[in-house]
């Protein structure tokens, strides 16, 4: 078991090094891409700043608390995107060209190979943006409120991990869709649109919308829930939301296995 794990990790890091080396051939382009990844994701926080500057705001959320929520989502994206989201485009292209079989023939997990091949270093720009925003907002908020701040930090770290896992689930779901929706390069846009809801506090949504965002499409774990735990006011729906997110990831992994089994080459 340990030997297999070690072997898998060795293969993964080897692929990762290859992907990084390939991308490093155009260093200037990589640098610019990282900057744009950082800037593009800062649009919403900048809008939030402008809105608060004009005297408006989200009820119950101070400016820096709202920024902290958005920074949390950016950090989760900054971790998940470089490692997971490249596989959507890679799979779309491989399936369209009919070369996905080459991965299936290799004596290692297809998912592991896909993840290794699809590493996108430019997306680390999102992480830098998220960390910068987080550092900017953190000194101006109270961590844990009345509760123990170290417990709040631990809870935050655990939920951030869950957010990254959920993002992996979203990436895998989009990858599964690329087997059915041949050559569709806009699959990630579906996620981008849905995840836009993750950037705002729950108080602005209606009850039914909250249900959807918590249990059906687990968007609330991506930003709101970790941030609210860090601020010491965990949402009552937290345990259910965590369960919903874990179920989502498990269902998507099941779907991935089914899609791989059903894949019939040249058109899925």
């Amino acid at each position: 078991m340990i030997a297999r794990l070690r072997d898998g990790l060795a293969v993964y890091f080897c692929l990762l090094r290859g992907a990084l080396a390939a991308r490093m051939t155009d260093r200037a382009d990589l640098g610019i891409s990282m900057i744009i990844m950082l800037l593009a994701d800062l649009v919403v926080p900048l809008t939030t700043l402008l809105v608060y500057q004009h005297g408006a705001g989200f009820t119950g959320w101070q400016r820096d608390e709202a920024l902290l929520l958005q920074a949390t989502f950016l950090i989760a994206k900054g971790i998940a995107f470089p490692f997971c989201f490249g596989m959507i485009w890679t799979t779309t292209e491989l399936v369209r060209e009919g070369t996905f079989e080459l991965l299936l023939l290799k004596p290692r997990s297809t998912l592991l190979l896909l993840l290794g091949h699809s590493f996108q270093p430019e997306d680390t720009g999102k992480l830098l943006g998220g960390i910068a925003l987080f550092c900017l907002a953190l000194p101006n908020v109270t961590i844990g409120a009345d509760a123990d701040s170290s417990a709040a930090l631990l809870g935050f770290a655990a939920l951030l991990l869950l957010a990254v896992l959920t993002l992996f689930g979203f990436a895998l779901l989009m990858t599964c869709l690329s087997f059915v929706w041949i050559g569709n390069s806009r699959l990630q846009e579906i996620f981008d649109a849905v995840s836009a809801f993750a950037l705002y506090p729950h108080g602005i949504f209606t009850r039914s919308a909250l249900g959807w965002l918590t249990w059906v499409i687990p968007v609330s774990v991506l930003g709101y829930l970790p941030a609210s735990v860090l601020l010491g006011r965990p949402d009552p729906a937290l345990p259910l939301a965590v369960g919903g997110a874990l179920c989502f990831v498990l269902v998507v992994i099941g779907l991935w296995r089914m899609m791989l089994a059903r894949y019939a080459s040249a058109g899925g």
């Binding site: 200037a28 382009d29 990589l30 610019i32 744009i36 800037l39 593009a40 430019e122």
Partner: peptide
């Protein structure tokens, strides 16, 4: 002028 323009295009597009 540039070998790869993906980054510049994204930046200007943004």
């Amino acid at each position: 002028w540039l070998t790869r323009t993906a980054g510049a295009r994204r930046l200007i597009g943004f």
